[in-house]
């Protein structure tokens, strides 16, 4: 009876979303009166013992280069064996790219109830009920997990990260590692940019910017804040910005600490992708823009005048100018 957390890595580095999952799993273990253990697959460059800071006591590592790239079928078999070996009753994933591939497979393999996109710890006063995001951020569902083993896939950026002083015990784990059927032949990373799905701060712009040549001030703001850039669907469809920047109901749904929307009117489909942001700032020259209703802070004004002044103020704040 323990909580087992899946630690996700890319090129040997632990993903930030896994630190959230580790913290979540450790707090869940405390709530259930049991211990938190974790599993990591593949070769890792980061210091695994340091993940004890997030409250996990023991980390099982399957140190095998065949696991360096995600093959959900191979991963699932290995994790299922780890669940059996550790006697885990709850398995925690981040609802990130890997989690979305592995957690449902594990659910089907173990016939274990799964909540995909959890936004908080379970309510265990009467059963095991977890709140999750539904209708693309427009509502929540309280989902009851009705099996002995349970799987929770935690929405990125919906849980804090603790930094205690624990040190985790790292132990090798022997499980079946099948030869991957999915062979990765090329990896193309956009370097130097903050990945949008993991970004804590996001600067986003829409059609109000009038053309792709005007994104310089948006990129400058993002650079000054160490933020990721995003855009509305209209902008991505027009080819002004790459599709991977499109946030909204049919694009990426994000939940950063700060979302700055510049020249975006705030159609319901766009709001669905960003309304879990903790603080929303809207800059739009139209005072009737629906986005203001969803915003915490706003300026009714011309982006071409407001944004450069904001950038100057941010530089001053950061001591750059």
């Amino acid at each position: 009876m323990s909580v087992l957390i899946f630690i996700d890595q890319s090129e040997g580095h632990i993903k930030k979303s896994s630190l959230e999952a580790l913290t979540y799993g450790a707090e869940l273990a405390a709530q259930l009166g049991t211990s938190a253990e974790a599993i990591v697959l593949g070769e890792v460059k980061d210091d695994l013992a340091a993940l004890g800071k997030q409250g996990v006591k023991k980390i099982h590592q399957v140190n095998n280069s065949a696991l360096n790239h995600l093959d959900a079928q191979v991963y699932t078999k290995a994790i299922a064996e780890a669940v059996a070996a550790t006697g885990a009753k709850v398995v925690v994933f981040s609802h990130n790219i890997s989690g979305k591939a592995i957690a449902p497979r594990l659910s089907a393999k173990l016939k274990a109830a799964m909540v995909a996109g959890a936004v908080g710890l379970p309510n265990t006063s009467n059963g095991f009920v977890v709140k999750k995001n539904v209708f693309s951020g427009k509502a929540f569902a309280n989902l009851s997990l009705n099996t002995d083993i349970k799987i929770i896939s935690l929405n990125p950026n919906s849980f804090h990260i603790t930094n205690g002083d624990g040190v985790a015990e790292v132990a090798p784990l022997s499980v079946t590692v099948d030869a991957p059927k999915v062979k990765v032949t090329a990896v193309n990373k956009v370097t130097g940019e903050v990945p949008l799905s993991e970004a804590e701060l996001v600067v986003s712009a829409g059609r109000g910017l009038k053309g792709p040549e005007n994104w310089g001030m948006i990129e400058e703001m993002a650079h000054l804040l160490h933020a990721a850039t995003a855009c509305s669907r209209a902008v991505a469809d027009a080819g002004w910005r790459p599709h991977h920047e499109h946030v909204g109901q049919t694009g990426l749904a994000i939940a950063p600490n700060l979302y700055i929307a510049i020249g975006i009117s705030g159609a319901i489909q766009h709001l669905a992708g960003v309304n879990r942001s903790k603080v929303i700032v809207v800059i739009n020259k139209d005072p009737e823009a629906p986005f203001f209703k969803a915003a915490d802070y706003g300026i009714v004004g011309d982006a071409f005048e407001v944004v450069p002044k904001m950038n100057a103020a941010i530089k001053k704040l950061k001591g750059i100018a």
Binding site: S107, K111, A112, A113, M114, V115, V129, K131, V134, G137, K138, A139, F140, A141, N142, L143, S144, L145, N146, T147, N275, V281, V282, F292, K293, A294, A295, D296, Y297, G298, I299, V300, G301, D302, E305, V306, V307, K309, M310, A312, A313, I314, K316, L317
Partner: peptide, 30 residues
Amino acid sequence: ALTSVVSFELPPAKAGVKLVSPDTPEELVR
């Protein structure tokens, strides 16, 4: 089925936007 929906809920309404004058964007940064 392995799961069941106990209830749905809508997100809490926002308290309302705090507007800053377009002449003082540095106030928004503050």
